[in-house]
Design a protein around this nucleic acid. Structure first.
Lengths: 194, 194
DNA sequence: GTCTATAAGAAGATAGAC
DNA sequence: GTCTATCTTCTTATAGAC
């Protein structure tokens, strides 16, 4: 039982990395077998199929996102500084962004094309950030509608930077654009409201 | 021979749509067989494998891009208006963007993760737009460096809009953001230079 | 140029031994 | 809980008839 929990977590960690690094549909059970060092039978004992693994991975990611956003809420007093912190996330993950794109954006994008079931599993990750960003704009006295629009806009800016960084393998671009994006936020909300 | 050319083109058209609608690695030979109505043997007669089909598809897309950009150069006098036209492309393709994302961004993203060979085939599409956008900014008296940075920025903005539109299936967002993006260009270059 | 047929391999799903 | 083994289906590759 105790060993089983470790194994379960091990499978999730390995699959999470594989799904991110080579895409979900490009990752086979055999890939997970190889990288975990476990047998196929053992993995199917813990997870019925790939979709079940994905669900667990997304659950883990959602928990991680919630923890992160909670931490930012606790540690960062001003909404504008929180928005900045959100942007800085891309900088600290720049090596992965360059090599594999945004873990949330690329996964959702893969499913959004033609896999409604998996799409509905992955979308909540985006919704978490959207909701949190909206809250920050609400604190800056935006109306609900304005706040949501601004949340989506910021999400869009960040996703665009991730896509281009990934496509052109260009970390200098990422750092430059995140800098400009923070300037934009600072300029728009340098202490003022909506 | 003449029928063969039609068949060849038919395969390319069908595969192009399938690769866009469900992703490259998610599309099998059997999918192409079904949708073309041709036999498997006939398709392998024309194309050795999936990669070869992809190469032809990208070649076709590159020709289409070149034709489009050439047309814009001919028909639109002012660089600022050309940049606007570039943004408007997303609006006219909004139904596809919503359902399948940007054909260029999603394809390149799929390969950029872990398929260097296919990545090098797909990247030139991005480079075409990057180069053309840079030219427009050069005409607006930007230095080569500035022009290239602005080209990447605009590419990034548009890709971000495509990703979020696709993720949230939200055409209203697309139209709103493209409007704002055009305002931004108009504001920055309302007849002035860099 | 187009088709059918087959074979060889990879993928996912399932059963049972330890 | 973990493993080996089998089975079915999907995917690709190749050969040969019309």
């Amino acid at each position: 039982m105790k060993q089983g929990d470790n194994t379960r977590q091990h499978i999730i960690d390995v699959a999470n990395e594989l799904f991110y690094h080579q895409g979900y549909s490009n990752t086979s059970f055999a890939n997970i077998v190889d990288k975990t060092g476990l047998s196929k039978g053992n993995i199917t004992y813990h997870f019925k199929n790939k979709k079940t693994i994905l669900e667990e991975i997304v659950n883990k990611r959602l928990t991680d996102i919630d923890d992160l956003l909670h931490e930012w809420n606790e540690e960062i007093g001003h909404p504008v500084s929180r928005l900045m912190r959100f942007c800085e996330m891309l900088v600290s993950e720049q090596d992965d962004i360059k090599s594999y794109g945004c873990p949330m954006g690329t996964l959702t994008g893969e499913f959004s094309k033609n896999e409604p079931e998996l799409y509905s599993i992955a979308l909540p990750m985006f919704q978490r950030f959207r909701g949190w960003l909206k809250q920050q704009y609400r604190l800056l006295d935006c109306t609900p509608k304005q706040a949501d629009e601004k949340a989506l806009e910021l999400l869009s800016r960040v996703q665009g930077i991730a896509v281009v960084t990934h496509a052109f393998k260009d970390k200098a671009f990422l750092n430059r654009e995140i800098g400009k994006l923070k300037d934009f936020i600072r300029y728009e909300y340098g202490g003022a409201s909506c």
